[in-house]
């Protein structure tokens, strides 16, 4: 099951995006290994989402600038890798991750001027509120672009999210798409055991949100499809949520389906095995 699932989850998208995914996984693994700290599990689980978001969805023109907020800031490795590989800053800067004098803090911040990061996140549960604020400013500015937010599932245990969910539907904030990385894991164990979130789709629907679900959030095709259909549902009076089923640690067999790799780095031997499962495609940083 474990080994096969890597093959099963192999994306069907075009070759270039496949290469990108493999390279981002390598970046994540090498970054956290390099400083023996960081969060590989959730990062690996969201590689396909970030790839599609940054390569296919986000638009950035002078008067039409979609914005993205990473609420679950601890998966900064995937964020930094994708930002660097989409030209926001030099690839070599990934070498500075979590090191002294770096702009690549353990959790993302705009404090030091890192391009592509709009707000500091890490203390959980704040990103949706900030995203709503940006969405409201876009409405005031008659700016048709959209706001995208990614949150974790365990993160939804924070009460502020539910204040934000309530607000967005009541005030018809319909230019925001919140994706929930639904991997069922958090640092202390499965979300079911730690504090069961229950029927998330029913909860969100009862809070007045348009709710979409993607069965395989590690499929480039499915992620692309769901984000596009979410876009088509914006500007219709309701905020949009996507429940994105992912596998934590996806792409590295011994990291998958467990919370054990939420916040620890592989050792030298483990790194070698993990990298052997993800060949270099676009060149390591």
């Amino acid at each position: 099951m474990k080994v096969n699932s890597i093959t099963l989850l192999l994306p069907k998208m075009n070759e270039d995006l496949n290469k990108f995914v493999y390279q981002v996984r390598r970046d994540i693994l090498r970054m956290v290994h390099g400083v023996n700290s960081g969060h590989p599990g959730g990062s690996l689980g969201c590689v396909e989402f970030f790839t599609i978001l940054y390569k296919k969805i986000l638009r950035s023109e002078s008067n039409f600038k979609d914005m993205f907020i990473l609420s679950n800031g601890h998966i900064s490795p995937v964020y930094y890798s994708v930002l660097a590989r989409t030209g926001h800053f030099e690839l070599s800067e990934l070498n500075t991750f979590r090191k002294i004098n770096s702009r690549l803090q353990g959790h993302p911040t705009n404090h030091d001027g890192l391009p592509g990061v709009n707000v500091s996140t890490g203390s959980l549960g704040q990103g949706i509120s900030v995203g709503i604020g940006i969405a409201l400013s876009k409405k005031l500015n008659n700016d048709d672009s959209l706001v995208y937010v990614l949150t974790g599932d365990g993160e939804l245990q924070e009460g502020q999210n539910w204040e934000a969910f309530m607000f967005a539907s009541a005030k018809k904030v319909d230019n925001i798409i919140v994706t929930i990385d639904y991997n069922g894991q958090q640092i202390d164990g499965s979300t079911k055991n730690v504090l069961d979130i229950g029927s998330l789709d029913k909860k969100l629907k009862s809070f007045g949100w348009e709710v979409l679900e993607v069965n395989n959030g590690n499929s480039l095709d499915e992620v692309y499809e769901i984000l596009n259909s979410a876009k088509n549902k914006t500007k219709k009076g309701k905020p949009i949520a996507i429940i994105m089923n992912t596998v934590m640690g996806n792409g590295v067999d011994f990291m998958m389906y467990t919370h054990n790799w939420h916040g620890i780095a592989p050792n030298d031997e483990q790194l070698e095995i993990a990298l052997s499962q993800n060949p270099e495609t676009l060149g390591d940083y």
Binding site: V119, I132, G133, I134, L136, S137, K138, N141, F167, K171
Partner: peptide, 24 residues
């Protein structure tokens, strides 16, 4: 230009941060 957030101060501060991000 006025946003009534209800009794939800954490969300209010977050939304304010977002509005500022959007230039307000």
């Amino acid at each position: 230009r006025f946003f009534q957030t209800g009794i939800a101060e954490a969300n209010m501060i977050g939304i304010a941060a977002g509005l500022a991000t959007g230039g307000k």
